[in-house]
Design a protein around this nucleic acid. Structure first.
Lengths: 342, 342
DNA sequence: TTGTACGCGTTATCAA
DNA sequence: TTGATAACGCGTACAA
């Protein structure tokens, strides 16, 4: 007698249908070699009992959970939400779920979250960027866990990845401004600690300026936390710099929005008096006044690509070790010719 | 001999420490009645072998997974990201993980996702709002799954919830505009299908206007998908309405941002020529030019409250059936006196 | 094509 | 306080 009337088990279905548990399992897993009538009887029994497979037991027995884990620094940044959304949609095609964990750019938290997801039994892991504790890699390898990093374009034999070069577009952005006659650039960056993407972008800015003979002094590189408020508040300090910059390169769109809005509030005309650039191309970038010059991060393509490649790895295939996507410059109204010297 | 050198099992730890598997389990679960020396031996063995508990097996045996599920319509809306972040942080205090699933305002997808999360073995469930398929409730009850809805203030004996009244602040917003002399209001709403919050807000706008003797005609209620682009594009149509509205009530901040930016692009002065309001109080609302008049949704408090209350339910306690939080008006520069009739 | 029976790695019950 | 062992619910060789 089964006293848990609320939860029918596979055995109950088997009894109801007058077949073995193995047959029910086969129907459940669409295994080959099941006769039509048997399948029908089982499905009727499932419907009648309102049976829902016990995912945990299934995972334990099959050693697969039907879900992959993703370690995200934060969901605050919409660009990650967009990518995750795209990833989740594509995984659905592969009949695979997504477990999300965040770590607020704290790499120790990231390692903790990794262990948690492994304990949940995920079949694969997605990580953002290239900065991780060494234990992350050893743990993944020891567990033989299929994994993929994304969002960066660094070549590393240990880290398969799908991403884009963060440095080149940044250089292009700086060169674009320099070509417009700007010689006094400032940079507003997110913290580069534990964040190779922010670091790569910063280096791109600095290198381009240096190579063009207009190096950016350390005083003109400002670092603030991620956030529109942080960008807004940084504006005043940036305008106080000597020499006063004629263009501000921001490490991401959200900081750029803050700067743009602060400029507007301060009555500074963009781009006549000041050029501002971002990085990400968030949906609202094109609607700012003026529209934001930025770099279009292929967030959706990353989501799709990661889903396909990781599923392939889980299925034992060997997709390309590295896949580089395009992150094109998007020139809009927030960047213009340098104001006449004065 | 254990050939899986990469994955130590609980039994391996027991052998290494010279104790029984039961004792290892007790140490792992901080059970009472474990002697110091035994605990030390076990912990040493765990460290030596790099043992990580197998979450799936643990869940199967204990019938708890140490995670709750949350069904979110979308992660695109930053207000949900904020709440989820807060929820996840607070759950961490209770040593509990979060599994996120999205359903894009498709209630059938929501039910699917619910089943998926149940299969994963979650210990509790969080749902947004009050609109769900009936099967959702029956499934949760049949499974005796602790659950909570949030983000709404509807009283329903079947649905415990932590949220806020979506209607009252909307009424207050409309009354605020009417008191400023506006008599020609328009509403820009997100789709109300499967979205009780959007519906409640819309009703608040309409009721307040009606009660003040300035009813909003159907022609002045426009519905578009969520998104800044959608708000931006809606602006022109709203300005074409006859009579031309002097104030636009938006169902959420993102639509309001779109309208605000479109107004700016069109050279329409806010609030001198047009008042605009939002709902959510996203971080950038205060930085717009002018700053956005809106309603501050207690997203962070909801996250914390949901975490505490759901954990309490899982632990067999009975927290308040309904918990209503404050969603105060935030009056800023985007709303002002109606322009002189003309 | 279908059924039997064991294994997945842990927790929990009961005895010692 | 500790240990032996039966669940937990399902997948899957292997047998029929």
């Amino acid at each position: 007698m089964n006293n848990k009337l609320q939860n029918a088990l596979l055995a109950d279905v088997a009894r109801e249908a007058g077949v073995s548990t193995a047959s029910v399992s086969r129907v459940l897993n669409r295994a080959p070699h099941v006769s039509k009538p048997l399948q029908a009887r089982v499905e009727a029994a499932i419907a009648k009992l309102g049976y829902v497979p016990h995912g945990t037991a299934r995972a334990l027995a099959s050693r697969r959970i039907g879900a992959i884990g993703v370690l995200v620094p934060t969901l605050d940044n919409p660009i990650f939400s967009i990518a995750i959304n795209s990833l989740e949609q594509r995984l659905k095609h592969h009949d695979c779920r997504l477990l999300i964990a965040t770590y607020r750019y704290d790499l120790d938290d990231e390692f903790d979250a990794l262990r948690t997801l492994i304990q949940q039994g995920v079949d694969g892991m997605v990580l953002i960027g290239h900065d991780h504790r060494p234990a992350v890699l050893t743990t993944l390898k020891r567990r033989k866990m299929p994994f993929l990093s994304c969002w960066h374009g660094l070549h590393d034999a240990d880290w398969p990845c799908i991403g884009f070069d963060n440095t080149a577009p940044s250089k292009a952005l700086a060169e674009h401004l320099l070509a417009l006659g700007h010689s006094r650039l400032a940079v507003l960056s997110a913290p580069v600690t534990s964040n190779d993407r922010a670091r790569a972008r910063l280096q791109g800015f600095i290198q381009a300026a240096e190579q063009t003979g207009c190096p950016i002094p350390d005083s003109h590189v400002m670092t603030v936390e991620y956030g529109i408020a942080e960008g807004f508040q940084a504006f005043d300090a940036l305008m106080q710099l000597q020499p006063r910059p004629t263009a501000i390169l921001c490490g991401n769109d959200t900081l750029a929005f803050g700067v743009l809005l602060a400029a507007q509030a301060a009555g500074i005309n963009v781009p006549q008096q000041l050029s501002v650039t971002g990085f990400d191309d968030l949906p609202q970038a094109r609607f700012m006044t003026p529209a934001l010059t930025t770099v279009a991060v292929p967030a959706i393509d990353i989501g799709h690509g990661v889903a396909d490649a990781l599923i392939a790895r889980i299925d034992g295939e060997t997709p390309p070790h590295q896949q580089l996507l395009d992150a094109p410059l998007v020139l809009r109204g927030s960047s213009g010719p340098a104001p006449p010297a004065g």
